[in-house]
């Protein structure tokens, strides 16, 4: 009889546990439904509910990770990093730790906290547990460089994965297409308007050259006619103004051109690149 009673007791105990587990599993499926249909606000609510009622703590990693992903998808990067960090604390193996750490890196890249992303990449690379995952680390390091407009370093990072890596070639192409801001300024010091022409703004460059020639002529002409004060004032008010303007223009045009080139590459990454994105 005792045995029978004990058996009945354990049956009920088991029923309770299984029943509780089933409820948590149902809740997880419910939250996943929202997540999969991209209803991230509701997904966060339901994952939080799951975490709140999960006394067994078995869903801590998965639910926190999904909350992080939901916040990331909603561009709430600070919250995303907070929940990825919670997930990391509850990770059960090295793979899960690596997954959360890379998500934190990716979110930092999106948040434009590049320095932090690069620091995390370095930390991850130094960690012996992840020696086999150096390619993944270099991949995200490359992305961090690309999004901070450092295409040369990005090309170097991708080259470590594969010398013919698609993104390495893209980064190299972008870097080569960019113009030198310093060079544009220097040639404008020598010949006003040359920097603008170098940056592709021919009309503006020629006009700048014209204004400088005219103002220069007036200044020199005033000195030749022994009207030194006129010469100084015209030189200061007109010639120097146009000369300085030409240098400033050269700098602005070069920056603008570089931005255009970078944006073209970023648009490619956003719309046409088929590999893993941020």
């Amino acid at each position: 009889m005792k045995t029978r009673l004990t058996a009945i007791f354990f049956c009920f105990l088991l029923f309770n546990i299984v029943n509780g587990q089933e409820n948590l599993q149902t809740q997880l499926n419910y939250a996943n439904g929202f997540f999969n249909s991209k209803q991230y606000y509701d997904a966060v609510t339901e994952y939080k509910r799951l975490l709140f009622f999960d006394s067994t703590k078995i869903y801590q990693y998965g639910a926190n990770f999904k909350i992080g992903e939901s916040y990331k998808a909603g561009a709430k990067f600070d919250d995303a990093i907070k929940y990825f960090s919670f997930a990391e604390l509850n990770a059960r193996n090295d793979d899960e730790i690596f997954e959360t750490k890379t998500e934190i890196i990716r979110t930092n890249i999106l948040r434009r906290t590049t320095e932090r992303a690069l620091q995390l990449c370095d930390d991850l690379e130094k960690d012996e547990r992840f020696n086999a995952k150096v390619d993944t680390i270099n991949y995200w390091r490359g992305w961090a460089f690309m999004l901070s407009d450092n295409w040369k370093s990005a090309a170097r990072s991708f080259a470590r994965i594969n010398p013919n890596h698609e993104l390495k070639l893209l980064a190299e192409r972008t870097d080569k297409a960019k113009v030198s801001v310093t060079f544009a300024k220097v040639i404008s010091y020598i010949l006003p308007g040359a920097g603008a022409i170098y940056s592709g703004n021919f009309l503006s460059g020629l006009m700048s050259l014209g204004w400088n020639t005219l103002a220069g002529y007036w200044t020199i002409n005033s000195f030749i006619e022994k009207r030194a004060f006129d010469g100084i004032v015209v030189g200061e008010l007109l010639w120097l103004r146009f000369y300085r303007g030409a240098i400033q223009n050269a700098e602005n045009f070069a920056i603008e051109k570089n931005l255009e080139i970078s944006n073209k590459s970023l648009r490619f990454l956003q719309n046409e690149y088929k590999g893993t994105k941020l």
């Binding site: 009673l5 009945i8 007791f9 009920f12 029923f15 309770n16 029943n19």
Partner: peptide
């Protein structure tokens, strides 16, 4: 044992 689950579970 039968009542407890009914009242709790």
């Amino acid at each position: 044992f039968l009542i407890i689950p009914l009242t709790t579970n």
